[in-house]
């Protein structure tokens, strides 16, 4: 069954989501990957005011390709989330509710999702051209000097993702694997 979910997420909408659900997201989100995470955390540690408000935000780990003329953005698929694990807990503490990427998360991040009622979605890695079709606008809102790694505000419509780690401890990667693993 496919669920349609509005962004920004709320504690209520996050609670409804179960690992394995296919979800279409509509609304606004932020992009950030390695360099932006590193800078956000160093600004936090220095006690500076962050350039963006993270309350109830969803962060998509992506460094988009340049846009072709007439398009808001170039191909934009997920990058490996695990590299953002060491930076994720402070962001969840600031109210981030949704994360979009691909690949395994650390146990600490999975526990923090339960604690902060947040959710980790997987987008299809390698399907960046199709994913970009669901992005209706894109604007750099911070760290423009980072190029593809700048923080962008995106508007998305029916952006397809799958719930990997929900706020109840469910994990679509381990559940999927258990179902299909053969003993040898």
């Amino acid at each position: 069954m496919t669920k349609t979910i509005q962004l920004p997420l709320t504690a209520e909408s996050v609670k409804q989501l179960q690992a394995g659900d296919v979800v279409l997201l509509t609304g606004r989100l932020l992009t950030a990957r390695d360099a932006a995470h590193k800078r956000l955390i160093s600004e936090l540690e220095a006690g500076l005011q962050l350039p963006i408000d993270l309350k109830d935000e969803t962060i998509f780990y992506v460094g988009p390709a340049p846009a072709k003329a007439g398009r808001p953005i170039g191909p934009a698929g997920p990058t490996t989330s695990g590299r953002m694990d060491p930076f994720t807990l402070p962001l969840l503490k600031l109210g981030v509710r949704g994360l979009i990427g691909k690949g395994y998360r650390s146990d600490r991040v999975k526990l923090a999702l339960i604690e902060h009622q947040a959710v980790y979605f997987g987008a299809v890695g390698g399907a960046a051209a199709l994913l970009a079709r669901q992005i209706t606008s894109a604007e750099v809102v911070a760290y423009a000097d980072l190029g593809t790694e700048a923080i962008r505000r995106l508007e998305v419509e029916d952006f397809p993702v799958l719930v990997v780690n929900d706020c109840h401890g469910g994990d679509a990667y381990s559940a999927g694997r258990e179902e299909f693993q053969k003993d040898s």
């Binding site: 992506v62 460094g63 170039g74 390698g126 399907a127 960046a128 051209a129 199709l130």
Partner: peptide
């Protein structure tokens, strides 16, 4: 589907080229 769409639109299949 992504591969066919990228080819017909002449855009990269993946953002990481």
């Amino acid at each position: 589907d992504n591969a066919s769409y990228a080819e017909s639109e002449q855009i990269p299949t993946c953002q990481d080229t």
